[in-house]
Simulated assay, not measured.
Amino acid sequence: MARAGLNAARLTAAAAELADEVGLEQVTVSALARRFGVKDASIYSHVRSLRELRVRVALLGGAEMTERIAAAVAGRAGRDALVAFADAYRRYALDHPGRYAATQMRVAPEEAADTAGLRRSVELTHGMLRAYGLAEPDLTDAGRLLRAALHGYVHLEATGGFAHPRAVEESWARSLDALHVLLDNWPRRADGPAR
C-alpha cells in the first residue's frame, strides 16, 4: 500500500528539488524513496517509471520557467521584451539547474498531452519575435536561434566554461544587444515576401 501523503505531485516537487541539489541524472526512484523513507515500490504506486518522473520534472520546470518569462515580458516589446525574456530564462536556469536540465529533455507529444505549458512557451516566444516583424517560417528559425543562443550561454556559464576575466554579465548584455540587432535586421528570404 502507498504511504499516506505521497502522490504524484508531491513526488514531482521532491524530484525537482533533488534535481536542483544533485543534478537530474542523480534523480532515481531509489534516491526519491530514500528521501521519503519508503521503499521503491511506494514510489511506483504513483509514477510508472523513472522516465515518467523525469518527464514530470521537465513539465514542472517548463511551466515554472514559462510563468517567470511571461511575467517578465508582460507589456514589453522589441528590445525590452527580448532582454526581459532572456534575463528571466537565464535566471531560472541558474536558480534551478536540475529542473532546467529536465526542460531540455525531448518529451513526446503524448507525454505532454495534458499540459498547456509547452504551447504557452511557444506562444510567448513567437509573440516576442513578432514584434520584430517576423512571420513563418522565420518565426521558427528565429525561435531556434534564440533558444540555441540562450541555452548555449547558460550552459557554458553554469559549467564554468567562461574563463576569460571579462565579467560574464557584461558579455551577456552585449550578446543580447547583438541578438536584438540580428532580429531587427533578420535576413529577407529571396523566395518569400519581404517583411
Rank of each mutant, 00 (worst) to 15 (best):
R76N: 06
T140F: 04
L24G: 00
F85D: 15
I43C: 04
A70K: 07
V154T: 14
F162Y: 11
G78L: 08
A163C: 07
N7G: 09
T159N: 01
E170N: 15
A194V: 14
I69V: 14
G78I: 03
D141Y: 08
D80A: 15
L129G: 00
H126Q: 05
G75F: 03
Y92P: 00
L145R: 07
L53T: 00
E67L: 08
L176N: 13
H96F: 01
A70I: 05
G23R: 01
L176K: 12
A4S: 13
D40V: 10
A102P: 00
A190L: 15
G161I: 06
S171K: 15
L134G: 00
M105A: 07
H155M: 10
P137S: 01
R91C: 10
G75C: 03
L146W: 02
Q104G: 15
V38S: 01
A8M: 12
E52I: 00
A31H: 01
F36Q: 01
A31D: 03
A58V: 02
I69H: 11
A148P: 04
G192H: 07
M1P: 15
G23Q: 02
R35T: 06
F36R: 01
L18E: 04
P109I: 05
A13L: 11
H164L: 13
A77W: 08
A14R: 06
P97V: 00
V38G: 01
R34F: 05
V181R: 13
A9D: 09
G5F: 04
A74Q: 10
A93W: 07
V38K: 01
G152R: 05
D184L: 12
M105F: 09
R99P: 02
E17G: 08
D40A: 13
R147E: 09
G23T: 02
A31S: 05
A72W: 06
L146P: 00
R79W: 12
R144I: 11
Q26L: 03
A163K: 10
R54Y: 00
H126N: 06
A33G: 09
A81N: 10
G160A: 01
N7H: 07
E136L: 03
V22G: 03
E17M: 08
L60Y: 02
L11E: 09
I69Y: 08
E25C: 02
H164A: 09
